[in-house]
Design a protein around this nucleic acid. Structure first.
Lengths: 154, 154
DNA sequence: ATTACTGCAAAGCATTTGCAAATGC
DNA sequence: GCATTTGCAAATGCTTTGCAGTAAT
């Protein structure tokens, strides 16, 4: 059983966790300590993180959770829509918080690997049009620009 | 030494191979039999193929080339701009011919994995604008739409 | 009590690498 | 002849899986 007071600090994360609990109940999955720990740590990350990093971070200490469970739970969180996956130029999967965020695209620096977010609202409309023309049922799309960021260009 | 007559059928491939030879000479790399075989087979593929598949195809027979060499050569071809990489929903890398092709984007079917090409010329301009605003030096970009294709939707 | 979840360690698996032999220049 | 490339097999490295034990409902 997950203690009621056991959420993870920030208020928005608490709300997110409550919604994730709804998702879990709806899918007859269980509310576990491990899931709460992983969920909160993942949601608290401000940047684009990798499953592996999070797993390493959670491999020791009192809140320790196994590598396998981290991977499982992140996949659940993607399914529930709380995080998104991205891929960097080295084909590694990165996650980013989706809950409470607006749609944005990414520029990825070839040199430092940094992710720079930018908006391109027009893309969505254009893509929707093309999908309708071609009878393709869009689920989502990814737009990534590769190159060199301002800092690295200096 | 690579025999002069030893190109690979199609005329456009022959021209491409000649250009690849220029590239190789320019970078002081060698014109080898293995490279010719891999280059021609890769260029002849009409669809989106995987290194692994090509390596398997070339693992037997008189034109056999090792797996490692296939991977190496495809990387060279990407560097030289004759093929592009794409990633499918299962994080596998696919290659597609770039030589003689115009820019296009992809819809990738969640169910059958098919790649559907479509044009979205406006994207390029919009992206260039954003990159200028943000001081990002664009090298290339990838736009992929995920969902269900017309056939699978039936 | 039942069923799902967790942790562990092993398996996967496409890709990369180290090194000796072969080949192009 | 010298440097690059090739082939082989082993290593890599992230991710997934099988299974036995543990926890949630």
């Amino acid at each position: 059983m997950v203690a009621v007071g056991d959420f993870c600090g920030e208020e928005s994360i608490r709300r997110a966790w409550d919604e994730f609990c709804d998702f879990l109940r709806k899918t007859r999955a269980r509310l576990t300590q491990s899931r709460r720990i992983i969920f909160c740590r993942a949601m608290a990350r401000p940047d684009h993180f990798r499953a592996d990093d999070l797993a390493n971070e959670l491999a020791f200490g009192q809140d320790r959770v196994s590598r396998a469970t981290v991977y499982h739970t992140l996949a659940l969180m993607v399914k529930a829509g709380f995080i998104h996956t991205l891929r960097d130029q080295n084909k590694h999967v990165h996650y980013e918080r989706a809950y409470g965020q607006t749609r944005h695209e990414h520029m990825i620096c070839d040199q430092c690997g940094r992710f720079i977010e930018f908006d391109m609202p027009e893309a969505s409309r254009l893509i929707t049009e093309r999908c309708e023309e071609l009878g393709f049922q869009k689920r989502t799309y990814r737009l990534a620009v590769f190159g060199v960021c301002r800092q690295c260009a200096k």
